[in-house]
């Protein structure tokens, strides 16, 4: 599920215009093999999920048509409601923190300084590292008695934290890991935006005696806004779908205090084998993600027209 959201550049309009629509249509041949793969591994699961979601279906058990019973069950399942709230709480924090830090980081890496290439490489390593491996290291660092993080906190005079071992601190702690991992992606997207900015407004502003903060607020921010919105959309989708680090570090616990929709879904499907109900969760989850994305893409459209 990889991919991207960027403005697509126009594809050689001259060529297509000269040869008309029929000409463009011939290129469908190139798409057929990939289309077959996409049909099998992406579209078939979507449709089959809808089919399963209207059935009472347990792996290794019976199955029968259930109408919308699975969906109705979602409305009365408190555990699911909490999972939705946990997901939204996690998402808001895991979007805002990387965005703020990422923009600040891009502003730093946009300047010229010695060792910039080295520093930037180190900075993007968290994003490329294997999430499970990283999650294991964080788990060891969060250890309440022997963990290095509590040692560092107490050595600068701060109280130790309970990290993932308390229901009030677990989600902010998971957000910390997510922020550590994905701030670099925001930085790269915004850095790409900064690189494309014209230099004239800055020179004019400098002559007028504007300070760095004023220039950032009145020139940089409005100009890179479309890039920030792209980063916002990508971060939101990824935070809603976050799984690996939560699954490895807290397994949704303590209790169910960090159980997000994705973890809830995993348990329903592969711990309780209740795949009819799990499919209904998938459908609702998917609608939620698409709805939020569309709202944010609406913001993006507006950003582009301004």
């Amino acid at each position: 599920m990889a991919d991207t959201i960027t403005a697509q550049s126009a594809a050689s309009p001259a060529l297509a215009l000269r040869h008309g629509r029929n000409y463009a249509r011939r290129y469908w041949v190139f798409i057929v093999p990939a289309a077959l793969v996409v049909l099998t591994v992406i579209v078939f699961p979507w449709l089959f999920t809808l089919y399963m979601s209207v059935h009472e279906w347990h792996i290794g058990g019976t199955r029968s048509f259930a109408g919308l019973a699975n969906y109705a069950r979602l409305f009365t399942d408190d555990r699911f409601h909490w999972a939705v709230l946990h997901t939204l709480y996690f998402t808001v924090l895991a979007v805002v923190a990387p965005l703020v830090l990422g923009v600040a980081a891009a502003e730093c890496f946009h300047r010229n300084f010695r060792f910039r290439a080295v520093a930037r490489t180190i900075f993007i390593l968290p994003m490329m590292a294997t999430p499970v491996a990283i999650a294991l290291v964080w788990t060891m660092m969060f250890h309440p008695q022997l963990g290095v993080l509590n040692y560092l906190l107490t050595s600068v005079g701060l109280p130790p934290s309970t990290w993932v071992y308390d229901s009030t601190t677990v989600i902010p702690t998971l957000v910390l890991v997510e922020t550590w991992q994905w701030t670099p992606l925001v930085m790269l997207i915004v850095l790409g935006g900064l690189a494309s900015l014209p230099t004239d407004p800055y020179e004019a502003a400098r002559i007028d005696g504007a300070g760095p903060w004023t220039m950032f607020r009145l020139i940089t921010l409005p100009l890179v806004w479309p890039f920030i919105v792209v980063a916002l959309v990508i971060r939101t989708i990824d935070a809603l779908k976050a799984f690996d680090t939560i699954f490895v570090i807290s397994q949704g616990g303590p209790g169910t205090s960090s159980e997000t929709i994705n973890i809830f879904l995993y348990l329903q499907a592969f711990a309780f084998y209740d795949i009819g109900y799990a499919s209904a969760v998938v459908a609702v989850f998917f609608v939620l993600i698409v709805a939020i994305s569309l709202v944010l893409l609406g913001v993006r459209q507006r950003a582009r027209w301004q």
Binding site: I5, P45, F48
Partner: peptide, 21 residues
């Protein structure tokens, strides 16, 4: 291209149940 985008929005787990079966 839009299809690819929607595929990107879908959580990995949701492909897994049907493919598992």
């Amino acid at each position: 291209a839009m299809l690819i985008l929607i595929a990107r929005m879908t959580p990995g787990l949701s492909y897994l149940i049907p493919l598992f079966l």
